[in-house]
Design a protein around this nucleic acid. Structure first.
Lengths: 220, 220
DNA sequence: TCAAAAGTGTTGTTTATACACCCATGT
DNA sequence: ACATGGGTGTATAAACAACACTTTTGA
């Protein structure tokens, strides 16, 4: 944390946010189609320059709001990459975050040139720069967080069924889990709590609605 | 990862390295006594500017060599802090790493003004900036890594006794562990492997020497 | 012979896994 | 009445936690 002489070769500092959601049975990520060179027309993780009077967390939260309209969701610093932005920028440093959102509460911005869209992680378009690496990394982090925290709260509305919750876990972990063991565990660990409400979703028995015991990130 | 227009207000980018070791029964960290204002005379985590043609990992490894002479040890990116360097620097971004070294292989540099020294984590001097926060964070990360990886290899020489290994764990976790369960687990998980050698350390029964099955970071 | 660290097994508890059938609804 | 997702319990295996005495050495 030593020197403080300001030289003219300071690298550009960017902040980007990997925004995840789960729709039906698919883990999705929000991407932006680049409207300018380099890599024009390819898709990239949303991000931008760090503002002059912003903390990193503020910049990430701002980016998230700009792209989804959503605030107060799970948002965590992921990793800082030193070499993946366009080399033309001359040594950029990019601080990556990842966010978990309930897609129902998202409204995508309407713009020309820079369109945004959700993509399933197992059906990605051509990605700019080294964004595939970043997504891999983010997915790994998300998967392990699911195992020992309650961050799933940030992917679901206030009330949900245990089947919906299970689908969220299965989509992220990329594997099926046993229904009885899953429900037992969620309840035994106190992650969720039943409510009095029920919901009828199809020609089926009504499902009990649950809610998260805490909507703060918590280690189990 | 958007814009690329280079403005004159690019923040300073620094890289610092929290260097841990274990000596006897104490977890220690390497600190540098600041020779200049601000916070002159206080102690700080070693770090410096990111070089123009360096990756972040390279900068961290370079810092580590400069301060300890050691290379090829466990070195991992920790977190990126946006607000903790001196405010005079006008918006610095500091990418933190942490390293685990065997203190026997370290040679501290001889300098005037900027002296370096090891400090036990439970007996720290007055720290510059928000370095207490950073050490807290690094300690938390280290503790959890000890539980599910073999990174302890980087704190010990090639051959060591199980008691020495146990003391490393206890110093870091800050609690005593059961000797029989500890040995059982280390062997059952294949983290260490016995050798033919023994060592006599005092007026005691000779201890068998062990070695790590792998000296690459491995998740158990 | 004594002090001090090295070394070694068993038992109970908790946690995770495997697995199959009945229930309530709308069509 | 039937197709569909909702809902529930038990038995086994694996991981973890608690616990005490014998061995070997140098002084």
């Amino acid at each position: 944390m030593g020197g403080k002489t300001l030289r003219d070769s300071s690298p550009i500092v960017a902040v980007f946010v990997v925004i995840f959601t789960v729709v039906d049975d698919d883990l999705m990520v929000l991407l932006i189609r680049r409207g300018v060179e380099p890599n024009k027309g390819w898709w990239a993780i949303p991000g931008g320059r760090l503002g002059p009077d912003e903390t990193l967390d503020e910049a990430a939260a701002r980016k998230l709001v700009e792209e989804t309209g959503v605030r107060d969701v799970y948002l965590e610093q992921l990793y800082t990459f030193g070499e993946l932005d366009d080399p033309a920028a001359g040594g950029a440093v990019a601080i990556g975050y990842f966010a978990l959102v309930d897609h129902n509460s998202v409204s995508l911005p309407q713009r020309d040139e820079w369109t945004t869209a959700w993509f399933a992680l197992n059906d990605l378009p051509r990605l700019a720069f080294k964004n595939d690496t970043v997504l891999e990394y983010a997915l790994g982090r998300l998967r392990s967080k699911m195992e020992y925290t309650n961050v799933a709260y940030s992917l679901l509305p206030q009330y949900f069924t245990l089947s919906q919750l299970q689908r969220v876990y299965e989509s992220i972990l990329g594997k099926r889990v046993d229904k009885r063991n899953f429900r037992k565990r969620m309840l035994a660990l106190g992650i969720v709590r039943p409510t009095e409400r029920t919901i009828v979703l199809g020609a089926h028995r009504p499902a009990k609605l649950y809610t998260f015991s805490s909507r703060q990130p918590t280690v189990i």
